[in-house]
Simulated scan of single mutants.
Amino acid sequence: MKDLSWKTLSSEYLFKDTWFTLRSDTCETRDGRIIKPYYVYEFPTWVIAVALTADGKFILERQYRHALGVTNLELPGGCVDPTDPTLESALRRELAEETGYSFDTVEYIGKTSANPSTNNNWAHFYLATGGRKEQEQHLDFNEEIEVYLYSADELKQLLRENGIVQSMHVTALLYALTRLGLLQW
């Protein structure tokens, strides 16, 4: 296969903040074309859980998302902090903070990019099983999260009705439902 990668000639940071950084790259294609500017959004690595309680219920979160102005259902997860020793530990921390649950087993099931043409990060998916409520939520200052439990049939109906709009969460559910044998191709 032909190598289609570009060479980065220079980068300039236009904006830097905790959760979002914007840079402008000057790139050269394999055939010598110069692409300028090429904007790249830098985000932290994300972890997302398809989490099941010990009795097999799927844990979903309901929260407001300002960019779209919607309150919707999502999966638990968040950003990997610099202090998290591993992706799994970041996921377990996010699960405890957002839902109050801890889990017997956490299995890596894949990753995706929200938009590889502009975003530089990955979203890593996990299947967490054997969940038990062990604490109250410890939410960030900007979070207000309601936790709901869904059966597999209720979850699949929710997906059929476009009840989960976050595309990476839909992808994580696709991976997890397939892994659990609840979705066949």
Rank of each mutant, 00 (worst) to 15 (best):
E144N: 09
E154Y: 03
A49R: 04
A49F: 04
P116M: 04
P82W: 12
Y108N: 13
W122R: 12
L75S: 11
F20S: 07
T45P: 03
F20M: 07
P44G: 04
N142F: 09
L68Y: 05
L60R: 13
T178M: 00
Y108K: 14
T26N: 01
Q135G: 14
S117N: 08
T105Y: 09
A152N: 02
G131D: 13
K36R: 02
T26K: 12
Y41W: 04
M168D: 08
Y41G: 00
K16N: 06
V80C: 05
G78I: 02
E98N: 01
I59A: 07
A96L: 14
E12W: 00
D3V: 05
D104T: 14
Q157S: 14
K57S: 07
L149V: 07
C79I: 09
Y39A: 01
D31P: 05
F43H: 15
L14T: 00
D31N: 15
K2V: 12
I48W: 00
E146V: 08
T26Y: 01
H124R: 11
K16G: 00
L95P: 06
W19S: 10
R160C: 03
Y150Q: 00
D55V: 00
Q157I: 06
G32I: 07
T18L: 03
L91H: 09
D17Q: 13
A96H: 06
W6V: 12
A128N: 12
K7N: 13
E98R: 06
L4K: 13
N120F: 00
D25P: 02
K2G: 04
Q184G: 02
I35F: 01
Q63Y: 12
S10V: 01
G56S: 08
V106L: 14
F125C: 08
V165E: 10
T171C: 05
E74D: 07
